[in-house]
Each structure stands twice: as C-alpha cells, then as structure tokens.
Simulated assay, not measured.
Amino acid sequence: MKVYFQIQWKIINRHIKEADLNVLLAWVLASISFIGLSIILFSQYEYAKYLYVVLPLFFSIRIGDSKRNTFLKICYGVRKFRLLRLFESLFISIPFLTILVINQSFLVSSVLVVIISTLTLFERRSNFRFIVPTPFQKLPFEFIIGFRRSFLAVAIIYAITIISIKVDNFNLGLFSIGLSFLCTLSYYSFMEDKVYVWSHIKKPRGFLLKKIRVAAFCNSILYLPLIGLLSFFFYENIHQLLILYGLGLFFIVAIIFMKYSAFPKQAGLRESIVLSVTFYFPPIVLITFLYFYFQSLRSLSKVLK
C-alpha cells in the first residue's frame, strides 16, 4: 500500500508541474489558502463545521468509483482494498478534522471519523441502473449529469432550508443558498468533447452567452423555490437573499469562463489559483472575470470558426 500512496503523491505533483507551477510553492499557497478560508468561515458562520463534514465525505465518495474499486481489488485483494480505502478517506479528512479540532468541534469531528470509516464498508455498484429523472433532458449536459450525481446533496440543501424556517434561523437559510451555488459550480467540472463544442453553429461569444442563459435558467429551476420560501418567511431580509443570489449567478458565469479558458484542456491549477485569490480579494473580481472571458474567447475561437 505504501507504493500506491507514493504513486498517488507523484501523480498529484506531476499535475502541478504540468500547470507550470513550483510544487513546493503550490502546496504552501494551497495550505495558506485553506487555513485562511477556514478562519474566515469559522469566525463568521456558525454552521461552517457542518460544511467541513460534508466536503470530505463528498470527496471520499467521488474517489470510490466502481471501476477504480474493481481495479484496486485486483491489485491488492479485498482485505487490503478495504484498508487502502479507509486510509485514503482518512488522509482526505485530515485537513478538515484538524480545523474542526482546533475550533473545538469534537463531537462533529468524531461523527466525521465514524461516517468516513463506515463508508469503506460500502461500494458503488456499477450494475445499479436506477436513473434519476431530471427536468433538464433537452438542455446541455452539465445539469443533467451534475444533478444526477448530486441529487442527494440537492435534497439535503432543501432540508437545511426547511430546518432554517422551522427554527427561525435566517443565517442557516443563507448557508443553504451558499451550498446550492457550490453544488451548481461543481457541475462545470465536467469537460465535453471538442466535437460537441464544434457542432454548435455559433461564434465564441454566442456560445458563451447560450451557456450563461442555460446556467441561469437551470439554476433557477433548482433553487428559486428556496429563495421564494426564505423570502416569504424572512421577508425583512429579502435584500440579502437577492444580493447572495446575484453574487452566486455572477460566480457561475465566472466558472463558465474559467472552464473554457483552457479549452479543450481541463482548467488547471493555475486557473483555480486565480479564482481562489479572487475569493480572498473581491476588489479584483472584475479583472479576474475579464481575464477568464478573453481567455475563453481565444480558446473557443480555435474550435468555433
């Protein structure tokens, strides 16, 4: 198993090098960014600790792909496979657990360890063919694939919103809206084939505009009911909801531009760092927005003639 983790470490560092970044500097910046964002979240939001349970669970589930599990079983056998998945999930959880312990969230951190350990006993079965229905059948693939992979997360977001209304806690409702946009942003991690983009009879600007319209429409289908509920029960705070919703849509547009800024390649570490810096220094958000926009136009112009 030691060899396996050494290989994974080399693969991660190779991706960093391919992004033309210094490996040591990248890890230092990532650590500082994670710590800084954690300080901001825990100092301003009471429910940040629950986000630090959801995120490692999400990452752990994502790496538990059935094909990957089958390959690991062939290489290591079932017993070592279980241990490997346990260690892998715990390694992912260590940064989040550390922040939880520092903030004295001992009960939540214990729950995270128990859930992570239990997850290693279950596997995603490739022969399970239940298809989650979506309202996006005739629309581009991002929301079709994204919703089917995250329908449980969407259900949890709705549950948190309902709980916020029941306990009369508006901040918890804002937290659920923030989670909804994080969920939508994750849909744009899927890169389509070059041929799919080429098939659009549009210029780069028209293609991006269509993507933005579809994103705003689909996101509204999913989450405008939440805005409506919170506006009805917390009508005195409706301006905060509208501001948050507007900011969320703005960042969805920025993510769309970032996605196609390196097309047909996947957006790399460099683009991710630029976006992360923007979160820490909001005054440069317009510069980042324009940077990704013009980069995406240049990349798409090679495909869309």
Rank of each mutant, 00 (worst) to 15 (best):
N171A: 06
S231I: 06
T70V: 07
I201R: 10
S301H: 05
D168K: 13
Y76P: 00
C75G: 05
L226T: 04
P283M: 13
V285S: 12
I238P: 02
A215E: 10
I145H: 10
A48T: 03
F81K: 05
L229A: 11
E123M: 10
Q8C: 08
I61H: 13
W27Q: 00
I255L: 02
I11D: 09
N127M: 07
L51C: 00
I16A: 00
I273T: 03
S296T: 05
L41K: 06
T70N: 13
L121H: 12
K2T: 13
Y280I: 15
I227K: 03
E236I: 13
V303E: 04
V114T: 04
D168Y: 11
V303M: 01
L119N: 00
S150Q: 14
Y187D: 09
F59W: 14
I238A: 06
I255G: 02
Y158I: 08
F294C: 04
K259I: 01
L304S: 00
Q6G: 07
K2Y: 15
R82V: 11
L57K: 01
F87A: 07
Y196F: 08
A215V: 00
Y223K: 01
A155K: 03
V54G: 04
K305M: 02
F141H: 11
R68P: 04
I284Q: 03
V214N: 04
F292M: 07
L247T: 05
S66H: 13
F58D: 01
W27E: 01
G228R: 06
F289Y: 15
I177S: 09
I201H: 12
F289T: 10
T288R: 02
A159S: 14
P133L: 11
Y196W: 11
A216F: 15
T98D: 02
I92M: 05
S126D: 13
N22T: 13
I35H: 02
P283L: 11
Y187T: 03
I201M: 11
N169L: 10
P264S: 03
F136Q: 04
R124G: 09
M191P: 01
M191Y: 07
P140F: 10
V285R: 07
F130Q: 00
M1C: 02
I212K: 11
M258H: 07
Y280K: 05
I201S: 10
P135I: 04
I144G: 02
R205H: 14
I157D: 06
V54K: 01
F122Q: 06
P225Y: 12
K2F: 15
V214H: 05
F91K: 03
W9N: 14
Y280W: 14
I99N: 00
L51V: 07
G178W: 07
V108Q: 12
F130S: 04
F34D: 06
I160W: 11
K265G: 01
D193P: 01
F257I: 01
V274A: 08
C218D: 15
L21E: 09
V3W: 11
F233G: 00
K259R: 14
F128G: 03
Q8M: 15
F34I: 02
F130W: 15
I145R: 11
L90W: 14
I16G: 03
F34N: 04
K202Y: 13
F292L: 06
L90F: 15
V197T: 09
Y50V: 08
T70M: 10
